[in-house]
Write a protein that binds this DNA or RNA. Structure first.
Lengths: 196, 196
DNA sequence: GTTAGCATGTAAGGAGTTACATGATTTT
DNA sequence: AAAATCATGTAACTCCTTACATGCTAAC
């Protein structure tokens, strides 16, 4: 099936992989992690958590000993099924991985990916942007009418070009890394941050 | 009311303002004009045209003399009500104008806007991005964990900074222009391009 | 004559927002 | 004691995409 919109679900699983969290905190972290243009709303997060509960990817752990705060909260933790799903999805380097909505999230979890997967995603992303660039460049020549339109097109093209250069640097770095160390780069798991 | 999603409608009206067009051609031009990340689909354009017909903003002009091609097409032209609506919306320099989805479109039609409106939209857009930047910058300090996450944040911040610089240049240019010529900058209307 | 591109649509469904609703806890 | 922020949710609605359906016309 490979639901197109598993972005949110995957990001949640990725965060819960590090430490259990409750909804409110999850939302804050998601907004920091992925530079979403609009902030993620509760109306979108909470239903997603319910869906994930039903799917068996996460478990509800109603607060036992909340530590500092005596405020009751619903804490979620990732289940084995969730871990399995996350790993499977994160391994997939298909077109979905380099689409606009997914790419940032995939990149954010690159530490949990094999080097080849990273490469294929970065290269896929780059050629996607390259296509867009080609279209934009030919379009520019055609109608040199309004000066604001022209300026907008110029700036858009420059932005995408910059993005492409960034990807090229990353690809080169990845290739260099691959040469020296063919293994997966495993970051040491940081100690679960205490959510206050 | 100020429907949030009038973006598409406004863009269509803006294009029809220059010359009557049929749906297929409209879609192509919209995709060029606004650098939408995904191409606009027919499933979104055609229903929008129907809505606009019902609203009385456009008229259907089933092809009379198609010129070069003898292919029958449904050509739309803007109505007085549509012109009125477009002018009213394009004059509004409220928050909606500098949101992500709207800003590019508004900018593309800047030639049909007063200098003060342009200024307010550019400045609104800039402070919106500035806020985003502040949030991102403070976020960055907190968790210097994963190197890919760090790189993503660095790059995002740099992109927004670049955007802010661009807006600043535009604002300065606009201010200089305002000093010399307080009137609206009217581009000569380019001759309606013959759609083949 | 067949393929590629032109041209117009509809139906079902996904993903998320806004607005509403409620209440606890912490800070001032 | 009030205000801010934490915390969790639901319902209605919007906008768009995908996939389907259909047929014309130009070029090879």
């Amino acid at each position: 099936m490979t639901r197109k919109g598993a972005t949110l679900e995957l990001a949640v699983l990725g965060l819960l992989h590090e430490s259990p969290l409750h909804g409110y905190e999850l939302r804050k972290r998601l907004n920091l992690l992925l530079g979403w243009t609009r902030l993620l709303s509760y109306g979108s997060l909470y239903p997603a958590l319910k869906r994930m509960l039903r799917a068996g990817w996460i478990n509800e752990v109603t607060t036992v000993s909340p530590g500092v705060s005596r405020r009751q909260r619903i804490v979620y933790q990732i289940s084995p099924a969730g871990t399995e799903f996350f790993s499977r999805e994160i391994t997939d380097a298909g077109p979905a991985a380099w689409e606009d909505e997914n790419f940032n999230m995939r990149f954010a979890f690159f530490s949990r990916t094999e080097s080849d997967v990273r490469m294929r995603i970065l290269e896929g992303r780059r050629s996607r942007l390259q296509e867009r660039l080609d279209r934009a460049r030919t379009a520019r020549g055609e109608r040199a009418g309004d000066r604001y339109v022209t300026e907008l097109q110029r700036h858009s093209i420059e932005s995408v070009e910059r993005e492409v250069r960034w990807l090229t640097e990353l690809i080169d770095a990845e290739r260099a890394l691959k040469g020296t160390n063919p293994q997966v780069v495993r970051e040491p798991i940081t100690a679960p941050t205490e959510f206050s």
